[in-house]
Design a protein around this nucleic acid. Structure first.
Length: 193
DNA sequence: TAGGCCATCTGGTCCT
DNA sequence: AGGACCAGATGGCCTA
């Protein structure tokens, strides 16, 4: 990408004196020896200190760019990890970032509903509730959607569960929950977006 | 070719 | 002061 630094980089020895950040292998930030001598002569000059300020600013900016790049790479790594634990689509198309987040949101909700309904059925039959065996983990879909940004307090689908049926809890067969979360995401549910 | 997605740069703000 | 985080801007790539 072209940036304001494209021009700077092309003749950066006018702009960047050698700093501790740079090694000695011909870095573009390394000025020629003559320039270093001139800089020594002008050490007390006002122009040089202004230039130095600019250099410091630019170096800070470059370092900040680097950190930001790494930060975004870490974020993308986390997204990839999230994609890795989500069910894969049959066509193996990679989920976009927003799709990954929303799919994960719906997937968690669907699993929560699965647990909740299983508990309900266990209650009928007298079996041990599944949630107890799982350590009473809070299930987002089981009580509210307050974990979503919408702050909805209904027991229906969370904010990004537009793909889910209107009243999933009323459905006895909950296998559709997973099916919807897993496979209906892209093709059947444009409302997810 | 328009639109979607993405990577990167950038400046502002907040936190340590 | 410096780093983390965030959102806007920009340009490249890809696809319908």
């Amino acid at each position: 990408m072209d940036s304001v630094y494209s021009d700077i980089d092309s003749n950066s020895c006018d702009f960047f004196p050698h700093t501790d950040d740079e090694d000695s292998r011909g870095s573009p930030l390394c000025p020629p020896p003559e320039q270093l001598q001139q800089q020594k002569k002008r050490r007390r000059g006002r122009a040089r200190s202004e230039a130095t300020v600019q250099v410091v600013k630019k170096n800070r900016r470059l370092k900040a760019n680097d950190r930001e790049r790494n930060r975004m790479h870490n974020l993308n790594d986390a997204l990839d990890a999230l994609r890795g634990v989500l069910p894969a689509f049959p066509d193996e198309t990679k989920l976009t970032k927003i799709e990954t987040l929303r799919f994960a949101h719906n997937y968690i909700w669907a699993l929560s509903e699965t647990i909740r309904i299983a508990d309900l059925q266990a209650g009928k039959t007298g079996d041990a509730p599944l949630l107890l065996s799982l350590g009473e983990a809070p299930s987002p879909g089981s009580d509210t959607c307050s974990w979503s940004s919408s702050g909805s307090s209904s027991s229906s689908s969370p904010a990004y569960c537009a793909s889910s049926p209107g009243s999933p809890a009323a459905q006895e067969d909950y296998s559709y929950l997973q099916q919807d979360a897993l496979f209906g995401f892209r093709s059947f549910v444009p409302g997810i977006y």
